[in-house]
């Protein structure tokens, strides 16, 4: 297999995403700042304690200007801390939202495994194959308790909370096979809920995807579910019931009854299926029944993929 060079030495955690370089830059800068402060402080403490140890003949008349000294080091500390804060918050905010053109992969955490499904319907368990150099957006759901998607080599972690979809994204920058952990305690086999993320060259990735046979794309599976669950009766073309059409809505803003505006994203679609009465589009009756408890996370993910595909530009996969 290509790119099987695993984690090499314990001293070096591979930097395998574009974010990793930047996080490490901050981490090690902080480490050096910490080390410097420790050296200065310990130096002072040990120096004073030894020099002024009892029984030595020293000048012990102290007239240090207490207030001025205190103000000086408090201000210095505050300035150091504020600059670290600003630097770190800048990176955090910047890294908080994925680019628009990211490759989307769906993932579900359950006690105690990770399941992934690629857009073409390729499924894997506890393994996630991703192409090098492409922003990847993993849309995560959990079937039971809180899990956390953690890839140390990417310096990236995202909790997945029941009831919400969460997005973890990264741009792999180094071919290899890296640990995937569940970082939020989730019960009995929490420590065995781990797998690997495999970063491949783009060609290898395409070849790997093509290696699956008999798969059906997520959207196509979703389309079947769309009629199976009866959604098509109201939301399908030519339906007699007055329900909002679903073509081209993804990513748009819709006005809601009550005057607010909602952006149609994955969580909006999910909520609209499970708790439709919460966000009724203006001009429609709240007649849609809730599908909560009747549809599991895997089917939800397919339905969402289908509805999103209705908004894809013509000719896109």
């Amino acid at each position: 297999m290509p790119g099987t060079d695993t984690q090499e030495s314990i001293a070096l955690l591979p930097r395998a995403s574009t974010l990793a370089e930047r996080v490490d830059a901050q981490f090690f800068t902080l480490l050096w700042v910490d080390a410097l402060m420790v050296v200065v402080l310990f130096g002072l403490i040990i120096g004073f304690a030894v020099y002024y140890r009892r029984g030595t003949l020293r000048n012990r008349v102290s007239n240090a200007p207490q207030t001025r000294v205190e103000i000086t080091w408090s201000t210095a500390l505050l300035l150091i801390f504020l600059s670290i804060f600003a630097w770190s918050a800048h990176l955090y905010v910047e890294a908080s939202s994925p680019p628009k053109n990211a490759l989307e992969i769906h993932g579900i955490g359950k006690q105690w495994m990770w399941k992934f499904e690629h857009r073409g319907g390729q499924r894997e368990i506890n393994e996630l194959h991703v192409p090098l150099g492409v922003p990847v957006k993993v849309i995560l759901a959990t079937q039971d308790v809180i899990h956390s998607f953690f890839v140390p080599a990417f310096r990236m972690k995202q909790d997945v909370v029941p009831g919400r979809l969460r997005v973890a994204w990264f741009t792999p920058s180094r071919v290899g096979r890296y640990h995937l952990f569940c970082a939020e305690y989730c019960g009995l086999d929490h420590s065995r809920m781990r797998g690997h993320v495999v970063v491949m060259e783009r060609n290898d990735y395409e070849a790997w995807l093509a290696g699956f046979t008999g798969t059906e794309s997520l959207a196509a599976q979703g389309e079947k579910l769309f009629s199976q669950y009866g959604c098509i009766g109201c939301h399908g073309p030519g339906s007699k019931v007055l329900a909002p059409g679903l073509g081209g809505i993804f990513g748009k803003s819709v006005p809601l009854a009550g005057g607010s505006i909602a952006v149609v994203d994955e969580n909006y679609l999910r909520d609209s299926i499970l708790a439709p009465e919460q966000q009724v589009v203006a001009g429609y009756q709240p007649i849609m029944p809730s599908f909560a408890g009747r549809i599991d996370e895997a089917d939800l993910m397919r339905l969402i993929a289908y509805i999103k595909s209705l908004s894809a530009p013509q000719g896109a996969p």
Binding site: Q26, M37, V38, W87, S88, A89, K157, A183
Partner: peptide, 23 residues
């Protein structure tokens, strides 16, 4: 306490905490 406090500053840094949180 100094070491604990300084590493506390490290985990208070949002971007770094994303990596070291829950580890």
């Amino acid at each position: 306490f100094t070491i604990g406090g300084l590493t506390g500053v490290t985990v208070a840094s949002t971007a770094v905490d994303v990596h070291v949180h829950d580890t």
